[in-house]
Design a protein around this nucleic acid. Structure first.
Length: 862
DNA sequence: AAACGAGTAA
DNA sequence: TTGCATACTCGTTT
């Protein structure tokens, strides 16, 4: 009898919380979870005891290795590892979830005799592929899998991929054939390739990539080398009626030759560029070009593609025209019919659009994964539209710029904020030799075109999408943008923009190819699938773990710190509405202490620390109490710059507090430690984005360097649940979250805040009073900061609120107001130059007050 | 001119 | 499950 299937990969698996579907569900509020239980499964799998022991033993080894200095320092609880050993019972490991539960037992599939040499498993029903990452073939196979399947979960030792229609489509689009895919898969499987999978692959690949959408002379054409297929589409009720009449029936031409395309910035590019061959020269064969571009060690996998390319040259292509307005309809219809339209731009043979003079600066070398992602885009010598997923700090911008340098036509770059508009322009100037006159910015402030007859425009989504009243200059600029054909549309941060916005952007601006860039192709809604046909398939998705192992991004230690709620806080928490709940678990004094402790610890180590809080009230309170600088939405532009500048260069300023403003719209200096005290529900994207803020760390290649990511969570609250949701993405990327329940010697922290019960009660009262909404309704003004601005009756409303609360809480001293105002000597102030200090300070407070008033007015309406 | 505020959209 | 931050435009102030 063959060994039990599920045991095979198991010994190697095992990081804390490996895999999204693992049984480590975090219970909801008021359901305390003991540390021990968090490492046990629900007991619904059926490993036998021998297996279990073996699994546990190996797992312990892995975990022990990973339990590094930072956890041990605080002696979190070395008992927790022990506890798990004693735990006995059933455990889940990386593999069990795929092979467990009797329903999906695939032991009927016969193992190949040399199965232990093979790295892949497959689920014949669902098309899920499991890769044993420790196999000698793993590296070669990984690249193949990334090409034909969606990465779903990639912890250290077992990777899960999913075969989907889209993923196969992407594979075909870079030139793989059914046969290549089936043969290669079969070669690396432990079992013979199931018939169901073979049929699935064949049915998908047969029709995929056969139809193309081509923009030519400002007109759109549906193109295919298969005349019969085109006829079939024309007979379709939806597509047929959109054919532009009078443009002849079906036009026939010949596919252009492939030539030897070299992506600039690759090792090979230098010489070719010098000789001026990269554009027109055909000295190199297509095979060379593609192989160089791929720069992978599995030339054999790609050989088939290249042979195919050569034959392509003689193929006749047929096309019919469709109107601009019907592009999306036809695209969608084709997808439904099972012939997804591929968008390709044969930029080297486009003589209608002026060439742009742009190249990467001579000494620029792009990294292997950047090269690899671009090779997916330019795999067959043309530019394919699609999305490239790279973690923040891994050089998305450079990928975009390199794509622009390869295409060398007009480029339009779309960003989410005007900050990043400026950055994109700077990056272009930094990495490429583009003439500064040829790259223009289109925002509210600047509406200049480039000087030549082609160039680069950098703008925001809202600028292009805006339907409302426009300034005269904007209107003129939009007409200009709409009137011409762009070679490349670069879409930054594609995940944040709603599908409808894309629709408008794409329908109003004509571009030959579109490249979407993002760090996290994730949304909590289902809109992400729209991107598939609005922009194109996912061309490449980097593996975070691999990048950090190779030193391209920093290694990160992730930890979740569980902070108990003092009883009086918890009582209020149970009683409070959801708004107040959020405030309360952020203001948990134990959390505050943990935060203080971690800041102390990491400042002493020389880390630069960013603390995130989505909850504005607690953000301010934390920052003021700890005397740290902070930035939130209401912080003026000048002050922001000043604070960031200081955080970056001033050795006295090592900790910065940020609202969610820091998620997207700030160009943050490098940090090496990150603490979250409050976050946005279960947003996986936010979690990933925040983690990304420390991946850039320059010290990442120092021996033993780690960046740190802490999530502070109030125990037994909603946060526990959200936290587990938020981590799902990172866990899939292979990050292990360690749970810390106790910070060693925290009580010895100098000036530990809220150390006495008295202080904690005061904190609670103040929190309740300050956030008491109802009390403000019948009061005219309620300035947070006394007599600023209008200056009447400021304290009156507060006093009323205080009195009301006093009824329920008891003991409130009259001096509290004073203490509160006293505290608002923001650390930010210390940064200001003497002269300006006073004026800016009062402006700051004025702004705060106005903001407060506005939100109150809003609350009253609603 | 530059900076700021209000209003609106998404 | 909800609230926050932004971009843009126009009009007003310094």
């Amino acid at each position: 009898m063959p060994p039990k299937r599920k045991a095979v990969g198991a010994p190697q698996a095992g990081v804390a919380k490996a895999g999204r579907t693992s049984a480590l569900s975090t219970p909801g509020p008021a359901t305390p979870r003991s540390l021990e239980s968090s490492f046990q499964s629900d007991g619904d799998d059926d490993l036998n005891d021998d297996d279990v022991d073996e699994v546990i033993k190996r797992k312990e080894e892995v975990i022990a290795r990973e339990a590094d200095e930072f956890v041990n320092t605080w002696a979190v609880d070395s008992s927790r590892f022990q506890a798990r050993q004693d735990g006995g019972g059933s455990h889940r490991d990386g593999a069990t979830q795929f092979f467990g539960s009797g329903k999906r037992d695939f032991s009927y599939l016969n193992l190949k005799p040399d199965h232990d040499q093979k790295p892949l498993w497959i689920d014949p029903e669902k098309g899920t592929i499991i890769l044993e990452k420790f196999s000698p073939d793993a590296d070669r196979v990984t690249d193949f899998l990334v090409t034909i399947a969606e990465p779903k979960s990639r912890p250290h030792f077992l990777h899960e991929y999913q075969l989907t229609a889209h993923s196969l489509y992407a594979g075909v689009s870079i030139g793989l054939q059914s046969k290549d895919i089936i043969d290669t898969l079969d070669r690396f499987l432990k079992t013979p390739l199931p018939e169901s999978i073979r049929l699935f692959i064949e049915s998908c690949t047969k029709s995929y990539g056969k139809v193309k959408l081509v923009l030519n002379n400002n007109k759109y054409f549906v193109e295919s080398s298969d005349a019969e297929l085109l006829q079939k589409l024309l007979r379709d009720e939806v597509i047929g009626k959109w054919r532009v009449q009078g443009s002849g029936d079906i036009t026939t031409s010949y596919a252009p030759t492939m030539g030897g395309l070299v992506i600039p910035g690759t090792k090979d590019a230098a010489g070719v560029n010098q000789a001026g061959l990269n554009k027109s020269g055909n000295k190199k064969t297509a095979e060379d070009g593609a192989a160089d571009a791929a720069a992978t060690n599995e030339a054999d996998l790609y050989a088939a593609i290249n042979e195919e390319d050569d034959e392509d040259d003689k193929d006749a292509v047929h096309a019919f025209e469709i109107p601009e307005t019907a592009v999306e309809i036809v695209q969608r219809r084709c997808l439904d019919l099972g012939f997804p339209i591929l968008e390709e731009y044969d930029f080297r043979n486009d003589s209608n659009n002026a060439d742009l003079e742009i190249d990467l600066r001579p000494n620029t070398q792009i990294r292997p994964y950047q090269e690899q992602s671009l090779s997916k885009m330019f795999g067959n010598g043309r530019a394919k539209s699609g999305i490239i997923v790279l973690p923040c700090g891994a050089g998305k911008t450079l990928v975009g710029i390199t794509a622009a340098c390869t295409i060398k036509k007009g480029v339009i770059v779309l960003c989410t904020s005007s900050m990043s508009v400026v950055q994109w322009r700077q990056e272009f100037l930094k990495w490429s030799n583009i003439n500064p006159d040829d790259i223009a910015v289109f925002t509210a402030e600047s509406k200049n075109k480039f000087s030549g007859n082609t160039g680069i425009i950098v703008t925001t989504y809202s600028m292009v999408t805006n339907n409302r009243e426009r300034s005269h200059d904007s209107k003129k600029m939009m007409d200009f943008l709409k009137s011409r054909e762009w070679g490349l549309m670069l879409l930054d941060e594609v995940h944040v923009v709603p599908a409808d916005v894309f629709r408008r952007v794409i329908s109003s601006i004509k571009s030959h190819s579109k490249l979407g860039l993002t760090a996290t192709l994730l949304r909590e809604d289902d809109k992400i699938s729209h991107l598939n046909f609005l922009i194109g398939p996912k061309l490449y998705e980097a593996n975070w773990m691999e990048l950090s192992e190779k030193g391209h991004i920093a290694k990160v230690q992730c930890a979740e710190v569980w902070c108990p709620m003092p009883t009086e806080f918890y009582d209020e928490y149970l009683r409070a509405n959801s708004r107040m709940k959020r405030t309360l678990y952020a203001m948990n004094p134990r959390k505050f202490q943990a935060c203080q402790y971690l800041i102390n610890y990491h400042e002493a180590r020389g880390d630069k620390i960013i603390v995130f809080s989505d909850e504005l009230y607690s953000l301010k309170q934390y920052a003021l109490k700890l005397n740290k600088v902070f930035i939130y939405g209401g912080t003026g532009q000048a002050e922001r710059m000043q604070v960031l500048e200081n955080f970056q260069h001033n050795p006295q300023v090592n900790t910065l507090f940020l609202s969610k403003i820091g998620d997207t719209s700030l160009d943050l200096p490098e940090a090496t430690c990150l603490i979250q005290i409050s976050s946005h529900f279960g947003s996986r994207r936010q979690e990933a984005q925040r983690l990304g803020r420390i991946l850039r760390a320059k010290r990442r290649n120092d021996v033993g360097f780690n960046a740190f990511f802490y999530s502070l969570v109030s125990k037994d609250t909603q946060e526990m649940y959200y936290s587990s949701k938020r981590q799902a993405f990172l866990v899939d990327q292979g990050y292990a979250f360690k749970v810390i329940t106790q910070l060693a010697n925290i009580e010895n922290t100098p000036d530990l805040a809220f150390a006495t019960a008295q202080e904690r009660r005061e904190l609670l009262q103040r929190t309740l009073v300050d956030n008491e909404k109802g009390a403000e309704d019948d009061v005219e003004t309620d300035d947070l900061f006394g007599k600023v601005g209008r200056g009447r009756g400021g304290a009156k409303g507060r006093a009323a609120a205080v009195r009301r609360m006093a009824g329920t809480l008891g003991e409130l001293s009259g001096g509290q107001d004073m203490a509160y105002i006293e505290q608002n000597k923001a650390a930010n102030k210390g940064l200001k130059k003497k002269g300006a200090a006073k004026a800016e300070q009062s402006a700051f407070f004025k702004k705060l007050q106005r903001e407060k008033e506005r939100s109150r007015a809003l609350a009253r309406q609603g």
